[in-house]
Structures are given as structure tokens and as C-alpha cells.
């Protein structure tokens, strides 16, 4: 009986469920990418040494404190609360014109992810050995060149597991956007359960769908990671000062 009801939900409301999944993936994907860009920018700014020029140094320090406030505020408040404040704050300030829902959702997820990514990227940059910078400087690169050509490519590879983690978290966390009415998968579940009164059955379906999405995404990102790691006989230098800390990549890595 239970499985019959579950199947009926899938058949009857597949258009809602598919639309919901599409919206969820769209918001999570764009949110993660924009968040990563925000993270990279803030990470680069925050790890750049202060300039000797007093004016530039002052500007840099102000920018750094703005970034810290942004990170602390968005990391320290729930996304659900942020959605309500941003969405209705905009409406109250603009005499009732509301933000379009999906762009609003993407915006909220992006700035949220950005706050987390900022710390992930900063961690990635400071984990790169100082010798890399020194080597780059010694061949005449500026700090910016060294960052873009030498450090960031390594950072990208190192932070990829954390980034895919964020992506998976975003797929699940878009569900809180239902408070402002974004028609993502959880919202659709709410609409369906209000029609058929079969809450448990509806959420069982949605649960499976969320798992399918997150599992597929993690597998794809794992493949990309493997590709970036290169051939089995290729050794990544994790740390040059301590040979024991080197990361050796083997063919038979756990999958």
C-alpha cells in the first residue's frame, strides 16, 4: 500500500518534482560557482601582503575589515533568516515590489556560500608552501602573477573536495528557500502533501530525489578530482620542507 502510494505520487506529480529538482540544481550550481568566485576574490585580497604605500595600505585594511564583517555576518546567521530579511527587506524598502524568486534564491545562496568559500580559499592559499611564492618572486614575478600563475592553480586542486562539499550542502540547503516561496524541490513537496495529505509518502519520494542529486554530483566531482590528480606515477608536492608530508597519489586509491 505504502509503495503504491509512493509510486502514485511519482506518476501524478512528476512534472512538479522534475521542475523542483531543476530549480534546486540551478540555484545550487550557480550559487556554488558565484560563491567560489567571491571566495577566490576575498581570499586573494586577504592574503596579499600590505603595500608600503600608506594610502594603499589603508584601503587594503578597510577592505579586509569589510570582508571580515561580511564573512562573520553571513556565516553566523541562518540562511533561512537571511532569506526572509533580504526578501521582505527589499519589498518594504521598494514599496511592495518584490525580487524575482529564482534570482533572489541564487543571490542568497551565492553570498552565503561566498562567506564559507572565503575561508576555504584562504585556508587553501596559506597551505601552499611559502617557497612557492619565493620561487616565483625570484624569477621576477609580481605577487599578483605568482598568485594567479603558481598558487591559485594548486589551491584549486587542493580545495576541490571542500568545494564539492559546499555544492552538496547547497543542494540540500536550497530547501530553506521555500520560506520565501522559491519553487524548489522541498517547496514542491509542500505543495504535493497539501493536496494528497500523504506527508510521509511525499517526503519519502523527495528524500530519494535529493539523494540521487547529491550522489550524482559527488561522483562527478570525484571524477574531476581524479582527472586533476593525473597519472599514478605522478607525485604531488604537498610540502617541500617536510618530505613525509608529501601527498603520494596511487592508482588504487579508495573510490
Amino acid at each position: 500500500m505504502f509503495f503504491v502510494q509512493v509510486w502514485e505520487i511519482v506518476v501524478k506529480y512528476h512534472s512538479y518534482l522534475l521542475k523542483g529538482m531543476g530549480t534546486t540544481l540551478l540555484i545550487a550550481l550557480i550559487g556554488t560557482i558565484v560563491g567560489l568566485v567571491i571566495g577566490l576574490l576575498t581570499g586573494i585580497v586577504r592574503t596579499t601582503p600590505f603595500s608600503k604605500n600608506k594610502l594603499l595600505c589603508g584601503l587594503h585594511k578597510t577592505l579586509n575589515s569589510i570582508i571580515s564583517v561580511y564573512i562573520e555576518v553571513f556565516r553566523g546567521t541562518p540562511m533561512m533568516v537571511q532569506s526572509m530579511v533580504i526578501y521582505w527587506g527589499y519589498a518594504f524598502l521598494n514599496g511592495g515590489s518584490t525580487l524575482p524568486l529564482i534570482p533572489a534564491g541564487i543571490f542568497i545562496v551565492s553570498i552565503n556560500t561566498g562567506a564559507y568559500m572565503a575561508e576555504i580559499v584562504r585556508g587553501g592559499i596559506i597551505s601552499i608552501d611559502k617557497g612557492q611564492f619565493e620561487g616565483a618572486y625570484s624569477v621576477g614575478m609580481t605577487h599578483f602573477q605568482a598568485m594567479m600563475q603558481v598558487v591559485i592553480p594548486q589551491v584549486m586542486r587542493n580545495i576541490l573536495p571542500s568545494v564539492s562539499n559546499e555544492f552538496v550542502i547547497n543542494i540540500k540547503d536550497t530547501s530553506v528557500l521555500n520560506v520565501i516561496g522559491v519553487a524548489e524541490l522541498y517547496y514542491m513537496a509542500g505543495a504535493i502533501k497539501a493536496i494528497n495529505f500523504q506527508t510521509f509518502q511525499t517526503y519519502t519520494v523527495v528524500c530519494v530525489l535529493y539523494f540521487i542529486m547529491t550522489f550524482t554530483v559527488t561522483r562527478i566531482l570525484r571524477l574531476i578530482e581524479k582527472k586533476l590528480n593525473g597519472k599514478a606515477n605522478y607525485t604531488i608536492c604537498g610540502s617541500q620542507s617536510d618530505s613525509h608530508a608529501e601527498i603520494h597519489v596511487h592508482e588504487q586509491e579508495e573510490s
Binding site: 511592495g96 515590489s97 520560506v179 520565501i180
Partner: peptide, 11 residues
Amino acid sequence: DSLLPAVQSGA
């Protein structure tokens, strides 16, 4: 929970 803000804000 959004019904009252919707009418108050003029949405």
C-alpha cells in the same frame, strides 16, 4: 508567515 509582510509591504 509571509502573508502579513506581503500585504504590509504592498507586494
